[in-house]
């Protein structure tokens, strides 16, 4: 009998610890997936709790967290305060990253070519069709550009990267705003669609005379020819960690209700013009409060110790002042 009791007790202990170490579940943005999985690995080593994150796309992530099949969702397109209130969500920014235009032209090296917002919009609208167009030549007097048709590559799938890119084009071009607008998937006037950041980088890497847009890490890893951009201040900037930092330094998170802030076309002489943020969504009054608290512990760990890991992967960690704000949001909004 004693023996039996011991077995039952051991079983109970095992069950309760395994319940404690239940995986934190999340779904959504593919943009944040690389850094999130790195944080998850480190967190598992430290706390023993795993994070099960499915990078199925922002839209699908929102749906999953609405259906309460996962504890948190991640999206590159922030929800407005109205939408947040409707679903009873808390929202906060988790990490930021740069989006860069990439080209493939014979003789043009990374950072050689300069583009401004208006020209980029015209290329994607199909009004500029050749690489030796006067507008491009004016920005790049030193480059010898071929008289070849520009082959435009965009995302075929709905994507937060597309949302931020088209949001930028809408801000700098009235034409773009009225004809196309900004969303995770838009009605592209020209070009071919490729699936995912990797699809776009594959296309631009392979085919000559193409232009596309990808998250910076993809451009770097695939050694693609990124362009410099003229920013809001009229200065030419190259996509570097410093330029991304400069863009987010001026962001006024404190006065953005629900942290609804899109970081494209930010002011500042050194700011890179197209920066995307991934937001985390969670139920304020979730049905499984223990799971919510476990998830918050993970996010706190990511903010406290994950900054270096994010920088290694070319993301921009949230500044300390913003993290303080976010932690206040947690304690005031998410019920434990």
């Amino acid at each position: 009998m004693k023996f039996l009791k011991a077995i039952v007790a051991a079983g109970l202990v095992a069950a309760s610890t395994s319940a404690f170490a239940a995986d934190i579940t999340g779904a959504g943005s593919t943009f944040i997936f690389p850094v999130l999985s790195k944080w998850a690995d480190a967190y598992k080593k430290e706390s023993g709790a795993g994070v099960n994150y499915q990078s199925i796309g922002s839209g699908a992530g929102i749906k999953q967290v609405q259906a309460k099949t996962v504890t948190f969702g991640a999206t590159d397109k922030p929800l407005t305060v109205d939408q947040l209130d409707k679903d009873g969500f808390a929202q906060w920014p988790m990490a930021m990253g740069g989006i860069v235009p990439v080209v493939n032209i014979d003789g043009v090296k990374a950072g050689d070519m300069v583009l401004d917002g208006d020209t980029l919009a015209k290329i994607y609208l199909g009004t500029i069709t050749k690489w030796d167009d006067a507008a491009i030549k004016k920005l790049n007097p030193k480059l010898s550009l071929p008289s070849e048709a520009i082959s435009v590559v965009h995302r075929a799938d709905g994507s937060g990267t597309t949302f931020n890119f088209t949001d930028y084009l809408s801000k700098v071009s009235a034409d773009w705003k009225s004809k196309v607008g900004s969303d995770t998937a838009v009605e592209w006037p020209v070009g071919v669609g490729a699936k995912g950041n990797e699809g776009v980088s594959g296309n631009v890497g392979q085919a000559k005379n193409t232009i596309g847009y990808v998250e910076y890490a993809y451009a770097k890893q695939n050694k693609l020819t990124y362009t410099a951009m003229v920013n809001k201040g009229g200065k030419t900037v190259e996509p570097t960690a410093d330029a991304f930092q400069a863009a987010v330094a001026n962001a006024d998170w404190a006065n953005a209700p629900g942290y609804y802030l899109i970081l494209t076309n930010q002011p500042g002489d050194k700011s890179w013009p197209i920066v995307a943020t991934t937001f985390v969504l969670m139920h304020k009054d979730g049905s499984d409060k223990a799971a919510s608290q476990e998830a918050l512990k993970f996010f706190k760990f990511a903010f406290d110790k994950g900054g270096k890991m994010a920088e290694d992967l070319d993301y921009i960690p949230m500044p300390e002042s913003v993290v303080k704000l976010i932690e206040k949001t947690w304690s005031s909004e998410i019920k434990s």
């Binding site: 796309g57 699908a60 075929a156 998937a185």
Partner: peptide, 9 residues
């Protein structure tokens, strides 16, 4: 369908 379904609603 393959390229748009995941992000559609």
């Amino acid at each position: 369908i393959a390229s748009e379904f995941a992000e559609s609603d």
